[in-house]
Amino acid sequence: MKQLSKTFLLLLISGMIVSWSAYAAWTPEESIKVLVGFKAGGGVDTLARVVSQKVAENTGWTIVVVNKTGGGGSVMAKSLKKAKPDGYTIGFAPGENFTFNPTINPRIGFTLHDFTHLAAISVSQCGLFSMSDKPWTTLADAIEAAKSGEEISVAYQAPKMGMSMKAIEKVFGVSLKLVPVKGGNGGVKNVLGGHVDIAWGAGIQAKYVKAGQMKILASCEKERIAMAPEAPTVRELGVKYVNLDAKFQFSAPGNLPADIAEAYVREIRRATGSKDIQDLIANKLSLKLIFTSGKELQKDLEQSLTEAQELVEFVKN
């Protein structure tokens, strides 16, 4: 009996040790660098900083956000690929950095599969907008107008948006004036001033839409966007290639040990569960809250890589 309880106790203790070590499998012993491919102060940077800070608060880890700008996020992706997969360097970026960027530039020096993708925390809510006094209700009306000879200009701020516009032109057999602008603000400014008819917006237009000054003509996501649930998606209008689908996610260098990945996924999930971060994502940045990780995230990314390849191929041929 005595012997038995001793064995039992030992088993219990070893069981506790095993389960405890599985729970706190990885704890960083030095500071962690979070690489961000965009300028400090922008949306991506803000999100990275706020989440990192929350993770640091929750865990006591030391986290430093480092901005490595250039090439629409590609400079950051390249240095993330080169970093050691030891958990001390991770990156935060929109998923298209890993899917769309290598598709349009095969010589870029990285592919989607060079990384361990940890967790996506939000997705873009992008729409095409115009001033409210335009006679169109949806993008379809504007395209009809263009078909009947009216000159219609569309501002876009990222290569994927320009590519999507070309797909729209091709599907409808219509010619629009595609004008590159700098940042979402460039689109808003030109639409407000009446210099361009339609622009792409990922959230910056929200306050003008709320004030009734502007309207959303179409959603550029897989689903309709929360800002204007009445506006159809471009896919509903018949262009299957358009899906901006910018998922903001944490990634690490390829072959990151599983216990480190698990620790990150757990802590990112805990941090993004907090009220203030959810408020920032949904209300201030006008993004949609999601949480995907592991196999599910990898599947999503493979899907968006295929879509990116289809889009580029469709436009180029």
Binding site: T69, G70, S74, V75, R107, I108, G109
Partner: peptide, 8 residues
């Protein structure tokens, strides 16, 4: 010159 950092 294919230097990514010069793209901007």
């Amino acid at each position: 010159f294919d230097i990514l950092e010069l793209e901007d």
